[in-house]
């Protein structure tokens, strides 16, 4: 059970959050079909650090960018998206 420090709520348990996707899997609404296929199916899945998109669903509902190491689970950055605090 990871410990995630939400910028609004402080340190919280992973069960309050939902992992949505890798940050580079965000597909813009006006992407080309080729870009869609690439972002949907051609994933890097790095063994190491990567940026992820999470939501603090049971907490404040905020969408967050998280920098996590996929082997050690170390999390060294959690940032909000947007500016409506």
């Amino acid at each position: 059970m990871l410990r995630i420090v939400c910028p609004h709520c402080g340190p919280r348990a992973q069960v309050e959050f939902v992992f949505d996707r890798a940050l580079d899997a965000i597909l813009p609404l006006d992407a080309s079909p080729a870009e869609a296929v690439s972002r949907l199916y051609e994933r890097d899945n790095p063994r190491g650090w990567s940026w992820e998109l999470w939501r603090h669903t049971a907490g404040c509902g905020a969408w967050l960018k998280l920098h996590r190491h996929s082997v050690t689970h170390e999390i060294d950055a959690v940032q909000t998206i947007g500016d409506l605090a």
């Binding site: 939902v18 949505d20 965000i26 813009p28 609404l29 998109l53 939501r55 669903t57 509902g61 969408w63 998206i81 947007g82």
Partner: peptide, 13 residues
């Protein structure tokens, strides 16, 4: 609910 929030906050803020 999750999808609506995703479109609202991430795709079309």
């Amino acid at each position: 609910a999750h999808h609506l929030a995703y479109v609202r906050q991430v795709l079309a803020p």
